[in-house]
Amino acid sequence: MRANRKLWAAATVCVAVVAGVTGCSTGDDKAADPFAGLTADAIADKAVDTTKAATAFRMNGAGKTDGEEMTVDFAVDDKGNCKGTMQAPKGGKAEMLATGGNSYMKGDDAFWKSSGGEEGASSDESDSMSALLKGRWMKMPAGAGEDEDNFCDLKKIVKDMDEETPRKGLTREADADVDGKPAAVLTKKDKGESTTFYVAKDSAKPYILRVVTTGGDDPGTVTLSEFDKPVTVTAPPKGDVVDMEELMKGAS
């Protein structure tokens, strides 16, 4: 009976890890490495291509922009839906939504006072912007700014990722876990900057799970999750929205 229980335990483990695993046995063998025989550069290629093909994901990150701390946490899909939060480099927090081709932002007082108005705006102008938008959503004009467009545009996000991800001269380090998921660890060091990629050890979906950059001008950490999970967004009520395009037309 004891031997039979051991065999049953081994069999259930085999069933659990059958995807991407070959040669499951009754011994203590570890799951096969889905990247066996591949160079670190080849693993990076697979990871980028797989992540680019995702129909949606959640991005959580913290880092520096122009020397100031910034954090983001948002989900975005390939249908133009997006929702999340950000903390601005100069202070304050904001929520962001995008759906139906429209983008909305709702910030606290600190956010609007630190970022309200055009560059060089006076404190009175920033205070006016904060008062106008207090507790309300700002509907952003179409093409209002490249940063806003990129924030909720999955195609642009993965395009930037494709262009910015180094794929040459990588080294594979010891494997690690990212939120409980086994990951291959790839590193790249260049002129005082070090970038580490964590790639899901999944033969079918080797997504990029995390990227950590240290040193250099823009250190930070970005974690990706909830791949291919649809993003459901409801536009805010019209009574809670300030349409900046209409406001600008009225001012002119």
Rank of each mutant, 00 (worst) to 15 (best):
D179W: 04
K113Y: 01
D153L: 04
V158H: 11
T99M: 06
S126Y: 00
K156A: 14
P166H: 10
C152E: 08
D153C: 09
L186A: 08
A121Q: 05
K134H: 12
G92C: 05
A131V: 05
A110Y: 13
R136D: 00
G117Q: 06
K181P: 01
G91A: 06
G92F: 11
P182Y: 05
D109R: 12
D78H: 11
E164D: 13
S126H: 11
E125H: 10
E146I: 06
Y104N: 05
M140G: 05
C82Q: 03
D153S: 13
G91P: 04
D109F: 13
A94F: 03
M138G: 11
G101L: 11
V158I: 14
D109L: 13
D175T: 00
L186Q: 06
S103N: 11
G116P: 08
G84L: 05
V178Y: 00
K93S: 13
L132A: 13
A88F: 12
K134L: 08
R167L: 04
S103H: 10
D179F: 05
S128L: 03
L97E: 03
M161F: 15
D153P: 02
R167W: 02
K159C: 10
W112N: 14
G100Q: 05
L133P: 04
G80Q: 04
S128T: 07
A142W: 12
I157D: 01
G92Y: 14
D127L: 00
L170D: 03
E119F: 12
A184G: 04
E163I: 13
K83L: 01
A184T: 02
L170V: 06
E125K: 14
A176H: 02
A94C: 07
D149C: 01
V158M: 09
K134T: 08
G80S: 09
E146K: 13
G84H: 06
E146W: 07
G107E: 11
K181Q: 06
A184Q: 02
D153M: 10
D108Q: 07
A98Y: 01
G145D: 09
T165L: 09
A183I: 00
A142Q: 13
Q87T: 09
N150W: 09
L154F: 09
L133R: 10
G135N: 14
S130P: 02
L186Y: 07
W112M: 10
R136T: 02
R136S: 01
L154I: 12
E146T: 09
D149Q: 14
E148W: 15
Q87V: 07
R172I: 03
G120F: 07
E119I: 10
K156D: 15
S123G: 01
K106E: 10
L97M: 09
N150H: 07
N102I: 04
S122Y: 05
E163R: 15
S103G: 12
Y104F: 15
K181R: 03
M86A: 05
S103C: 04
E119K: 15
G91Y: 10
K159Y: 08
N102E: 12
D160C: 02
